[in-house]
Each structure stands twice: as C-alpha cells, then as structure tokens.
Amino acid sequence: MDSNDTGSLIYLIILGLMVCSWFFTQNRQSMNKSLQQVALWGFIFLGAIAAYGLWDDISQTVSPQQSVFAEQGKIVVPRSPDGHYYIAAEVNGAPLQFVLDTGATEIVLTRNDAAAVGLSPDSLNFTRRAMTANGEVRTAPVRLDTVQLGPATDRDVTAVVNDGEMSRSLLGMTYLQRWGKIEISGGELTLTR
C-alpha cells in the first residue's frame, strides 16, 4: 500500500465516522431502530462485497466454460448443472454450441444452426428418417466444409439437419470417433487427439 492508498483510506475512515456520527445525533430518540437499520445496511454491504469477490467462482458454477489446451491437443468440458456437456465449436467459420450426445450417430444440426453455417434448410432434401426421444423425424444429409473444435480442424465432415424441433445441435459419435481419447471423470469430459 503506497502513501496515496493510505491517505485515501484515512480520508474514507474519517468521512465514514462523520456520516455515522451525524446519523446517530439525528436519530437519538429512536436509537434501537437506527441500530437495526445500520446492521441491515451493513449486512447488505458485506453481501455485495462477498458476491463481487466470489463472482468468478459463482459464474463458473452457474455457467461452466470449456478449456482448450492446444499444445496438448485436448479440450476439457465441465458438466453443466443440468448434467449435459455443452461444447463450443466453429462450423464453416460460424460459432455453434453443441450438446455432446453419445446416442446420436452423426452431427445433427438444428434448422437455425444449419442456416447460421451457410446451409439453406428450405432447399435441403429431407429424405432420411431418424428415431429420437421425441419420435421419428426427417433429416437431410449434408457435408460441412470445416468443423473446428479447439486445436483440431476437420474438413468435409458428414452431418444431418433435423427437420424436427430441437433446442441445440448434437455432437454425435461419428465426429467424436475422430478424437483419440474420450474420458469422463470427476464431472469433466476430456477430448484428446
């Protein structure tokens, strides 16, 4: 702490004491109620300071983020509070959020994500059928120019566009098999190439 910080701290302490003494002299008649209010505001202030100090830990718990270790060729994805593993990737240069789904055979794009990566869902030929948890849906086979996940870039990747209702695109097994090692341990998914 340098001399400027010390001077600022002394100034703030004196200012705080002056405000407190003014407050108590104005409220001598109802001191009990005043002390309760001061205690309440003190707890609110301390709570705000604690929340600010712990914000990084809180935000990581609420919305965990994946870590990329490019030099080691691996990605570590924490399990989200809903139990899924959400993986951020770039498809044809567009950022997408996937759900890792070992029950899905291929990469499955929603209609919105297909449009975001440069495909036109209305012009696709939905000739295939797939069984999902929501029943049978129509799918259209497509080829993705690039799929970049962390340090790895794959070209000419097969995928399908789902014509049914889906909240997120799925990262299925045909893509995951391109990784040499898939490990789930301690609430984290690790992909290594």
Rank of each mutant, 00 (worst) to 15 (best):
L119N: 07
E90V: 08
L17Q: 12
G103L: 11
A115W: 09
A114W: 10
Q37E: 06
L9W: 01
I107T: 11
S185Q: 15
L124Y: 04
N4K: 03
W55K: 13
R129S: 11
T61W: 06
Y85R: 12
Q60S: 12
M18K: 10
S123P: 01
F24H: 07
G93S: 06
P95F: 04
T127V: 10
N92G: 02
V160W: 10
R143Y: 00
M31D: 00
V161T: 03
L35G: 15
T139Y: 08
G150L: 01
R79T: 02
F69H: 10
I13M: 14
D163H: 01
D101Q: 05
V157T: 10
T158V: 03
L35P: 11
L189C: 12
R28L: 08
S30R: 10
N4L: 10
W22V: 05
D82C: 01
P95Y: 04
R168S: 09
L15G: 15
G172N: 08
Y11H: 11
S59Y: 00
A50E: 04
S63D: 08
A114D: 14
I75K: 01
Y52W: 03
F23M: 07
L54V: 06
I182N: 12
A39I: 05
T25V: 07
I182W: 13
G180D: 11
M1W: 00
T132H: 14
W41S: 00
L119S: 07
F24Q: 01
V147A: 12
L144Q: 14
G118T: 11
Q66I: 07
I10A: 15
Y86D: 04
N92L: 00
S120G: 09
A159Q: 05
L119M: 13
S80L: 05
N125G: 00
L12W: 02
H84G: 04
R168Y: 11
G118N: 14
M31F: 07
A50S: 08
S120Q: 14
